[in-house]
Write a protein that binds this DNA or RNA. Structure first.
Length: 138
DNA sequence: AGGGTGACACAGG
DNA sequence: GCCTGTGCCACCC
């Protein structure tokens, strides 16, 4: 099967470890579910807060599709570490969005991480047509 | 049980 | 484009 993921498709999705599971267990069901889906976003791609909410709703209709704010809260709770790639979650208009709760310099750091992964950022913006991840489900 | 809060989304102007 | 206002939802008191 050929996936149109562009040139930076080398990475597979992150596999959650037993260590991660222990941390995940401290979070709400919703947040756990969101973070699990987030692990599917590979290096070189991004997703949006809204896309994550929508995707979870498709997989489990008990959650609403327009919960983007709740997804933001999930990212803030971050026990992600760089493995569960919360730096790959941006706003639906292509702007970088926030990082580390809005600490000074955090957005710059997020931008640098994305660029080092091959995502092109121009004036704080990312071309979602090019870099948006497409979720795959059975 | 009810009100407050965000790493958001969207439509207007 | 760049604000601004309004709607949103899961979570936390």
């Amino acid at each position: 099967m050929i996936l149109d993921w562009g040139p930076y498709t080398i990475n597979k999705m992150y596999k959650i470890t037993a260590e991660d599971e222990k941390k995940l267990a401290t979070l709400s069901r919703y947040q756990q579910a969101i973070l699990r889906i987030l692990t599917e976003v590979p290096k070189g791609k991004v997703t949006t807060y809204g896309d994550l909410a929508k995707e979870l709703s498709l997989r489990d209709p008990k959650w609403l599709p327009n919960a983007s704010r709740a997804v933001g809260t999930t990212m803030k709770n971050n026990l992600c570490g760089p493995q569960i790639p919360c730096h790959r979650v941006i706003k639906s208009d292509g702007n970088i969005g926030n990082f580390r709760g809005g600490e000074k310099g955090a957005v710059e750091e997020k931008t640098a991480m994305l660029q080092s992964e091959g995502v092109i950022v121009v004036k704080g913006k990312i071309d979602l047509k090019k870099f948006r991840h497409t979720f795959h489900r059975e």
